[in-house]
Design a binder for these strands. Sequence first.
DNA 1: TTCATATTTGTCAAATATGTCAAGTATGAA
DNA 2: TTCATACTTGACATATTTGACAAATATGAA
Lengths: 82, 82
Amino acid sequence: MSSMKRSEVLKIIGQNIKRIRLEKGFTQVDLVGKIETRIDTTNISRIEKGRTNATIHTLYKISQALEVPLSEICDVYFSERV
Amino acid sequence: MSSMKRSEVLKIIGQNIKRIRLEKGFTQVDLVGKIETRIDTTNISRIEKGRTNATIHTLYKISQALEVPLSEICDVYFSERV
DNA sequence: TTCATATTTGTCAAATATGTCAAGTATGAA
DNA sequence: TTCATACTTGACATATTTGACAAATATGAA
């Protein structure tokens, strides 16, 4: 199990979120609307682009809006073994 | 899929880390020694106790030291359905 | 008890995540 | 083309994580 750089981890997390979001047919605005506590498209965009090292609670809120387990967003296991 | 409070999410993440760490027979000091980039027992303790909302990269580093997938640490799915 | 090890907690400074707003870019429809 | 929608990016202020260190608190062994 080799370690990835921070930027690689963030990029994969972001790709996971964007992929799931598009699969479900949601826009970023849709997500914001589904999340109880505050979050906005600026932050979602930054996370999807891997520009920010999100906190686990922010990712949890996104996972709730996407209706998937948090662990699915955090799946970087196989990617890191490539 | 009901939402959990921030404090609940953090608590479960912390419990996951501590449980895996003890299962593997590691001390917090062991973890620090296994992580390439800097981290210390102060932060690990705070995360295990659910006192801090860790960033995903910090959790990734911990998962590497624990030799488990990041998604295993982030497994709050079943917990939240209780 | 003493001693060693492990963990927790407090404080501090530095770095950075987040929310907000504005502006810019991209895409497609009419 | 214009227009609407969606996304990105920059700047800023605020809040919080993180790393560092010290001190306090377990915990168990001898």
